Amino acid sequence: MKAAIFKGPGMVEIGERPDPVIQEPTDAVVRVVLGCVCGSDLWYYRGESAHAVGSIGHEFIGVVEQAGAEVQGVREGDLVVAPFIYSDMSCPHCLNGSTISCPAGGNFGNGTIDGGQGEAVRVPLAGSTLVPVPGSEHPDAVLRSLLALSDVMSTGHHAAVSAGVKKGDTVTVVGDGAVGLCAVLASRRLGAERIIALSRHADRQKAAREFGATDIIEARGEEAVQAVLDLTGGIGADAALECVGTAQSIATAFAVARPGSTVGIVGVPHGQLSFAETFFRNTGWRGGPAPARIYIPELLGDVLDGVIDPGRVFDYETDLDHIADAYRAMDERRAIKSLVRVGAL
């Protein structure tokens, strides 16, 4: 089958991988319909994080082509959303809300398990991992939003949930990538009254406002912190959502969070941060990789009902043969998030 192959920093090319087959009775083979490039993929592409040579990509929706004898909950022909982590959903860690900690689980596109940037994927623990989509003949806009649930919308939602966003809150979102924009949308969904988005790019500012941002701050660093404090009467935000992962963005998120609040962190950390200042402000933090499998069912209903439309974060589109263009567009900040069309329903 055709698939994206990571060959080293700056080198993601179309290549050939063996067709996936059922290896365990709990496996399924999913034919990919839509995949995409994640912001975290860029850390590998830029050489800032290590990645094994081989398949890449962890976000996809598709159709179940084969299901092992012990797979329950999904069947051949089902359209499914695949969370970026496969898990058994029954171990103590999964039941405690941390699917990434599942001893039997793992992630797609890790060089061993094929990723969503390919024509098909073997999904371990398919019955507990895959989420079937009810109905049929969904329009393209809905399919794009279903794809967003596999990671970025679930991750943005995780930031908001981790920070305890509730009705009437003032929220500050640090980061204007796809996850940050989905965090804006998630905050609006949870009832935030004021949503302050930090963004210096006109296209992302526009998307943030469409998703529910009430205020835009273009500054960074100390200037951005002061701007948030000015907007909040010197108090700070009831919840701050950190959606980048750099030392500066983490420091900004803590600085704009009011004393006694919680910062929701979902940006993959790069760099170090001293927690001494946060200690004396009673500011907490919570977050990490999103338990997408836990969130997808509730978010799925809102997508199908037209309540949320996270698929609008995809502003660049190509096919599998041009996967290198999808990476370049995001790396050069010509795209918020690249969608990759792989197969038909």
Rank of each mutant, 00 (worst) to 15 (best):
M1I: 11
M1K: 08
A4M: 05
I5P: 00
K7V: 04
G10R: 10
V12W: 02
I14V: 15
I22L: 15
T26Q: 02
D27V: 14
D27E: 10
V29S: 02
V30P: 00
L34I: 09
C36H: 00
V37L: 06
G39Q: 09
S40E: 07
Y45D: 05
Y45P: 05
R46Q: 14
R46W: 14
H51T: 07
A52N: 12
A52K: 13
V53E: 10
S55Q: 09
E59C: 06
E59D: 08
F60G: 00
V64S: 04
E65L: 10
E65N: 10
A67W: 03
A69P: 03
V74K: 01
M89P: 03
M89Q: 15
S90L: 12
L95H: 09
G97H: 08
I100Y: 11
G105P: 08
N107A: 15
E119Q: 15
E119T: 10
A120K: 04
P124K: 07
V133P: 00
P139F: 02
A141F: 10
L143K: 11
L143G: 00
S145M: 02
S145I: 05
L146Q: 04
T155L: 07
A160S: 14
A163K: 03
A163P: 00
V165N: 01
K167L: 13
D169V: 03
D169T: 06
D176N: 13
G177L: 02
L181V: 12
C182R: 03
A183N: 09
V184R: 01
R194Q: 14
I196Y: 04
I196E: 01
L198F: 11
R200A: 15
D203E: 13
A207Q: 11
A207P: 01
E210N: 10
F211V: 09
G212L: 11
I216Y: 01
A219D: 13
E223A: 15
E223I: 07
A224Y: 02
A227G: 06
L231C: 01
T232P: 01
T232Y: 02
G234Q: 09
G236C: 03
A237F: 08
A237S: 15
A239N: 07
S249I: 14
S249G: 06
A251P: 01
A251E: 15
A253D: 02
A253F: 08
F254K: 05
A255W: 05
P259C: 11
G260D: 07
V263C: 05
P269E: 10
A276P: 00
E277N: 12
E277G: 11
T283L: 14
T283V: 15
W285R: 08
W285V: 12
R286V: 04
G288Q: 07
A290P: 03
P291W: 03
Y295W: 13
P297W: 05
V303M: 00
L304N: 00
L304G: 00
G306L: 10
G306N: 11
V313Q: 03
D315Q: 08
T318P: 04
D325W: 09
M330P: 01
M330Q: 12
D331G: 11
S338D: 03
